[in-house]
C-alpha cells in the first residue's frame, strides 16, 4: 500500500493576501516565490515525515483548481463567483471567447520550483505529482461562448492541456488529473458519453504515470467506462463510495487504484484500522496497487487538521 497527497493544501491567510496583491501588480514576484518556496518546503517536510509516496506541491499560487487550469490554458475572461460543486467554496468561472491555447509558463515555473525543493528533501522512493483539472470538469465549470458545445470545449481543452503535460512531464514523476464531473450525473450527458475519446486525446504521448482522481460523486453505472480510461491509477472518493464497494470490486482486478479515504471536508479524524481494512479489501479483490489519501484537495479544512491527517497517513503506512 502506498500513500499520496492530493492537489492543493490549505493556503495560509497572509500568502493569499500576497497572491492577490501580486495579481494586482502590488507585490513583487521574487518575494512571492520565496514565500511560496518556504510554505511548499513546510509541506514537503510534513510529507517526508509521514513517508508519503506521491507528493504534490500544494498549488499555493492558485486560488483553486480552476484558477490553476487557467494558468495552463487561455481562459480569456473570468466571470463572477460560482460555487465549486456543493461546497461553500467558490471559483471564478472561465469565460471562453476564443480558441483554447496552451499558456503554461507560470505553471511550469512553479512546478520547476517545487521539483528543486523536492529533489533536496523527500522520503526515499517518493514521487512528485503534478495536479491538473480534467477535461470533463473544465468543460462543466466553464462558461462557453465560443465553441457552443461542451464536447468541443473538452476536446479543445484536452488538446491544449496535452501540450502542457508534454512540456511539464520532464519535471514530474506523475500527473494527477482531477475530474470530479466524470461521475456527476448532472453534467452534460453527451459530454460524459464521450469521456473515453476525450481522454485518448488528453494523454497522447504522455509517458509519466497518470492518476485519474474523482471526488464528491461516485456513479456506479459509469464504473465500467471509468475503469477503461487510458490512465494508470483510478481514483475514487471512498467517503462518497463507502456503501458502493461491492459495485466497485469487480473492476479493480489488476488495476492500480487510489482510494480517497481521508475526508477532506470534515475535521473528524479517521481511524488507522478502518483505512487499513479498506485497503486490504481492495488488495484481496485483486487490485495490483492500492494508494490511499484524501478524497479531494484539502482547502475545505483548516491547515492544522489537514496536517494531522497527513500524519495519520504516515501511521497508516507504518501500522
Amino acid at each position: 500500500m502506498k500513500t499520496a497527497l492530493l492537489g492543493s493544501f490549505p493556503r495560509p491567510r497572509l500568502l493569499s493576501k500576497h497572491v492577490q496583491q501580486f495579481r494586482g501588480g502590488k507585490f513583487p514576484e521574487d518575494k512571492l516565490m520565496a514565500e511560496i518556496s518556504r510554505i511548499s518546503s513546510r509541506l514537503l517536510g510534513l510529507a517526508k515525515e509521514a513517508a508519503i509516496d506521491y507528493v504534490t506541491g500544494g498549488n499555493f499560487l492558485w486560488d483553486d483548481i480552476v484558477d490553476m487550469a487557467c494558468s495552463q490554458v487561455t481562459c480569456h475572461e473570468r466571470n463572477g463567483l460560482m460555487r465549486f460543486y456543493e461546497n461553500n467554496f467558490y471559483y471564478r468561472a472561465p469565460v471562453l471567447k476564443g480558441q483554447l491555447e496552451t499558456r503554461d509558463q507560470e505553471y511550469l515555473t512553479l512546478t520547476r520550483l517545487f521539483r528543486s525543493q523536492f529533489d533536496k528533501n523527500h522520503a526515499e522512493g517518493a514521487k512528485l505529482k503534478s495536479s491538473l483539472l480534467g477535461p470533463i470538469s473544465f468543460a462543466s465549470l466553464s462558461q462557453d461562448s465560443y465553441y457552443n458545445d461542451r464536447v468541443e470545449v473538452a476536446f479543445a481543452y484536452s488538446k491544449a492541456l496535452n501540450r502542457s503535460m508534454l512540456n511539464v512531464q520532464e519535471v514530474v514523476d506523475a500527473f494527477e488529473i482531477q475530474d470530479p464531473s466524470i461521475f456527476d450525473r448532472r453534467a452534460d450527458q453527451k459530454l460524459r458519453s464521450r469521456v473515453s475519446e476525450i481522454y485518448q486525446s488528453l494523454v497522447g504521448g504522455v509517458t509519466k504515470e497518470k492518476h485519474l482522481i474523482t471526488y464528491f460523486f461516485l456513479d456506479s453505472s459509469s464504473l465500467k467506462q471509468f475503469f477503461d480510461l487510458p490512465v494508470d491509477v483510478f481514483g475514487l472518493d471512498m467517503i462518497e463510495g463507502r456503501n458502493k464497494m461491492r459495485q466497485i470490486y469487480p473492476f479493480v482486478k489488476e488495476r492500480r487504484v487510489y482510494l480517497g479515504v481521508l475526508d477532506s471536508r470534515t475535521t473528524k479524524m479517521e481511524r488507522v484500522s478502518s483505512i487499513k481494512r479498506m485497503a486490504s479489501r481492495f488488495s484481496a479483490k485483486g487490485a495490483s496497487d492500492v494508494i490511499v489519501g484524501f478524497n479531494s484537495f484539502t482547502d475545505f479544512i483548516p491547515e492544522i487538521v489537514a496536517s494531522r491527517k497527513v500524519r495519520l497517513l504516515g501511521k497508516v503506512k507504518k501500522a
Binding site: 490549505p10 493556503r11 491567510r13 493569499s16 493576501k17 497572491v19 492577490q20 486560488d63 483553486d64 463567483l81 461553500n88 467554496f89 467558490y90 471559483y91 475535521t267 473528524k268 482547502d299 475545505f300 479544512i301 483548516p302 491547515e303 492544522i304 487538521v305
Partner: peptide, 17 residues
Amino acid sequence: FYGPVRVWGPNYYRKPS
C-alpha cells in the same frame, strides 16, 4: 474552532466543528 478555512481567493472564515 480549529482555524480559518478559505471560501474563495483571499477570503476566509473560521468554520466551526
